[in-house]
Design a protein around this nucleic acid. Sequence first.
DNA 1: GGTGTGACCAGCT
DNA 2: AAGCTGGCCACAC
Length: 113
Amino acid sequence: MNKELNFFEQVYEVAKLIPEGKVTTYGAIAKFLGSPQASRMVGWAMNNSNTYKCYIPAHRVVNRNGVLTGKHHFGFNNTMEELLKNEGVIIKNDKIINMQNYFWDPSKELAIN
DNA sequence: GGTGTGACCAGCT
DNA sequence: AAGCTGGCCACAC
């Protein structure tokens, strides 16, 4: 990963690498970027993902419980859920069922130089 | 340019 | 057991 990128940009880079049908957590991304406590920033980055030059699949990023905490930021309350369902992820009560099965850990999947 | 705040998380009352 | 707090970093005002 390019160290010259800002924290936000690194978040975006990781988010873009999430495969379809997979999800990851704010904390996992933050940890991967070297700041386990900075998970809030990941969410904030997602909030600003609209303004980023590239499309960010923010719907594949959930909190550590697999709950779609940020769904309200997609405009309609069910947009995030529909997007995930469309990728084969089962959602119930705004929560991903069998989340471990879909979990994509950047620190495992992405090799750190 | 200081201050507040945000889609979180872990630890401490 | 449930609520509060600190921490992380970038952005808007």
